[in-house]
Design a protein around this nucleic acid. Structure first.
Lengths: 346, 346
DNA sequence: GAGTAGGCTGGGAGCGCTCCCAACTCCGGT
DNA sequence: ACCGGAGTTGGGAGCGCTCCCAGCCTACTC
């Protein structure tokens, strides 16, 4: 049936052509010490002449690592979060993996069946480590991966005291910066539209908002906090509710750009001008923010940088052979700073 | 240094426990014919008991396929195109690969070095096939991959008569549908903002626009065609130019949502109302379209479906062992229909 | 009753590589 | 002249699996 002629040159052939032994070629190719300059040159020539490319399957089988890393994105999140998020993340991960000459295996998990498939995959040690994007508090995956002794780094965390290695952005700082900025613009009745409170990221942003108010000496008002769910519709409803509760509010911090867009629509319905009547600040600094009318002030997360940092941490763990080693020292955890991008909406 | 205890069970152990030979276990696991029910059961029990998972490296080495497929995204494109595009594409590809129990290897190519790295990868036959997203006309990759005898399916094409297998959306139909819709709304001075004309997709959408005009019996006017570059800024500039050339225009078909957003801003600057004065239609049906004010009528591309279709075609090629076989029959090519999503902007 | 076609089965022969050990060559030191 | 060590080297022994062939047994056929 399948006619695999497969004429690829092997180590053995390179060795023969270079007039040395297999072992020497292996050492030369892997940069191991103890190979004479002369041998190195002969081997380099032979490799070039034959167009030799090592067979990875054989390498893996013979005992080294797989040279691949999995990036897992639970689909539930993918829909909710600002879309560009994952692309930026992938970009960062990809960049760093390319530098280390490792492969990126992308896994979207949408169903129980796919989760099990991934479990088998990890169990089969088809990858050297796992990067896990935006995990819900009740996701069984982190525990599972850790139990299998597979190095793991998460993007974001499930609670303030996350035991697993992670890279997160400073969501508390994001809320504080937004409020400080609004206060600086002379606003005093500052409302917020929160994300789903079962996500740590949403709680942290709310916490930042409250901290920001406290720092400005403003007493928080429950009427100025409305629950959203990271969707545009949610943002719109929350904004209507806020306006109903307190028509005098003069600023809103929405915990995501998409919700801010919903809020903006609700404000327009209500005949409020942005920023004259109500100033608006979002989070994500996504394309949506730039394209809104007026362009939205937003807190930027260093998404690509998070991807890079996660990858570096993971590669380091892998390098240490630390699949939650026997006495896995401290799990590395990083919180990267956010940055306020001021536009016309505030 | 690295303490790899690696206590994973092997085929041999399963065979021993099941009281059969290695060959029988292999056959049973791979669903090959010629295994008695009795043996199958004993093996299934042993597999379960030991938690056996086949070692993929060994499988690949012993001659079967790698069970992985690469999805390549040239970075130049990634920035220009509507961001969600690739995520949707990935989603489709991922879905279909999961069904076939294959792995998705994502490769972003941003530099010459990364391209070479990918070349080596393909040369090493680390994947069974390649999916290539949005390729420029002068990209050396398609030729290279084909030359290496690696099955390839592209997303989009480089010219009307693309020799390589591809899945594209009906961009001509998109332009026609947009124009037909605008004509149906009573518009007659319909302008267009094109994408970069060195991309086939941009030329096709322009072609569709022209075809649409022809079908409506409208004589095209050069003054109503402005060149954009798929960016918001480009759309804004193009719109200004169009208004300068013909202040009386009453509709605009922008070849992407992002350009439509730029156009919308320029229209606002010029004091034109949308849709009262000028109706606006974009392409992509992205988040941007939904969030614009007013929400943008847009032509939806079946992106996820394209991803699925590409993947199915590729798997089929792989199945046929058709790495551009000796006399590779017709290369499969699919053009998927687009769909107009009407919103308030028109 | 001998002969033969299947249905299953076991296990040898690699796949191409890394690990590792024994061996070989040169040294300088004594 | 002899010895020990450092620098190199070749190649055996797997890694776990698939392919494939020979062998076995059963069940028919003539």
């Amino acid at each position: 049936m399948s006619e695999r002629q497969n004429g690829r040159p092997t180590l053995e052939q390179v060795a023969a052509l270079a007039g040395v032994g297999r072992g020497t070629v292996s050492r030369a190719i892997n940069g191991s010490p103890g190979v004479s300059e002369q041998a190195k040159e002969a081997i380099a020539r032979a490799v070039a002449e034959l167009g030799y490319v090592p067979n990875q399957a054989a390498r893996v089988l013979a005992g080294s690592l797989t040279d691949a890393v999995a990036l897992v994105i639970p689909e539930t999140e993918a829909r909710v979060f600002a879309e560009p998020y994952f692309l930026d993340l992938i970009r960062g991960v990809s960049t760093e993996l390319a530098l280390a000459d490792k492969q990126l295996l992308l896994t979207l998990i949408r169903s129980e069946a796919e989760r099990q498939r991934f479990e088998r995959y990890v169990a089969a040690r088809r990858v050297d480590g796992v990067l896990l994007a935006s995990v819900h508090g009740d996701d069984p995956l982190p525990a599972l991966i850790t139990r299998l002794g597979m190095p793991l780094v998460m993007n974001g965390r499930r609670s303030a005291a996350e035991p697993v290695a992670y890279v997160d952005s400073d969501n508390i700082g994001a809320g504080r910066a937004a409020v400080a900025h609004l206060v600086g613009r002379g606003r005093s009745r500052i409302a917020t539209i929160t994300g789903s409170q079962d996500m740590y990221v949403a709680r942290a942003r709310l916490g930042g908002y409250l901290a920001g108010l406290a720092e400005a000496g403003i007493v928080p008002d429950e009427a100025l906090v409305a629950a959203g769910d990271f969707t545009e519709a949610g943002g719109r409803l929350a904004m209507r509710e806020l306006l109903a509760r307190d028509p005098g509010l003069d600023a809103v911090f929405a915990a995501s750009d998409v919700m801010a867009a919903g809020a903006r629509a609700a404000l327009r319905e209500a005949g409020r001008r942005v920023p004259e009547d109500v100033a608006l600040v979002g989070v994500d600094d996504s394309a949506v923010a730039r394209l809104m009318d007026p362009p939205l002030t937003s807190v930027r997360q260093p998404i690509e940088e998070m991807g890079r940092t996660m990858t570096r941490l993971l590669l380091q763990k892998i390098g240490e052979g630390n699949g939650t080693g026997p006495v896995a020292g401290e799990e590395p955890q990083r919180i990267l700073p956010t940055e306020l991008v001021v536009r016309e909406s505030s």
